[in-house]
Amino acid sequence: MTHTQKRIIVNNIVMMLSTLSAIIGIGFLFWILGVLILNGVDALSWNIFSQEGAPPGYEESGLKHALIGQLMIVGVATFFGVPLGILAGTYLSEYGQQSKLAETIRDISDIMMSAPSIVIGAFVYAVVVAPMGHFSGWAGSIALTIIMLPIILRTTDDMLQLVPSTLREAAFALGAPKYKVIMQVVYRGAKAGILTGILLGVARVAGETAPLLFTSFNDNFLNTNMNEPMASLTVTMFNYATSPYEDWQKLGWAAAFILSMFILGLNILGRLFLLKKRGK
């Protein structure tokens, strides 16, 4: 066998292995997606949206409590996390720039983005839940805010840096003070990017379970008081899926389906915003 033939054979083997691993990898992922959709659609019914949690065996049980709890916890986290994150990102891109302080903040936020979220839960337990003496929706929101902050901060920073500096200079030349340049020129130029960052940040925290386990805890009934333990889709899903009752497990799949569709929807929406911007 000549050297060339050998190389071609080796090449074909490696290409086959790589295609095979792609098929295995992608197969697994579509298996999960398929399972999620089949079980989810099967479990969906009007009751899911109109009924609260019930003891196992009851026909009339749903996820209304978890859906509302989830929206409130994530909503409050978004309410605080987004403006704070944007403001901090603005500092990095517009004031701090390449200074040592700004670079350190960037590095620390990058690390925070991948840090284990359950540890944030333990931290919030120590500083909020323990002093208050009880679990609460607020504590869950605070944990999610902490997780969301670095994500929004870094995307805002990146997106603002993409705005050409000539635009800023033009506005400065007209005599605009810096805050006006930022608000009216830089933010406008980076609108689509910031929006994408927000959507991805919300999508990321909406799927967090670990930091909610010992902050907002759970509640099997509808509760809209943020000062009390609150149900969330993720924790409810965890409790129902690990229970031995078939109807609860079914509700768990419904929760998983609704949550995934919400998160995938946000991700797709975020991508579309960016694509539309690039298309211009």
Binding site: I32, R204, A206, G207, M237, A256, S260, I268
Partner: peptide, 24 residues
């Protein structure tokens, strides 16, 4: 399409991977 669906799968919350693992 394959690239985008892989990126989207990276966004699916880990609790769902856990649930799939438990049942399947």
């Amino acid at each position: 399409p394959v690239g985008v669906s892989i990126e989207l799968l990276a966004a699916i919350p880990s609790v769902i991977y856990g649930m799939w693992g438990l049942f399947y």
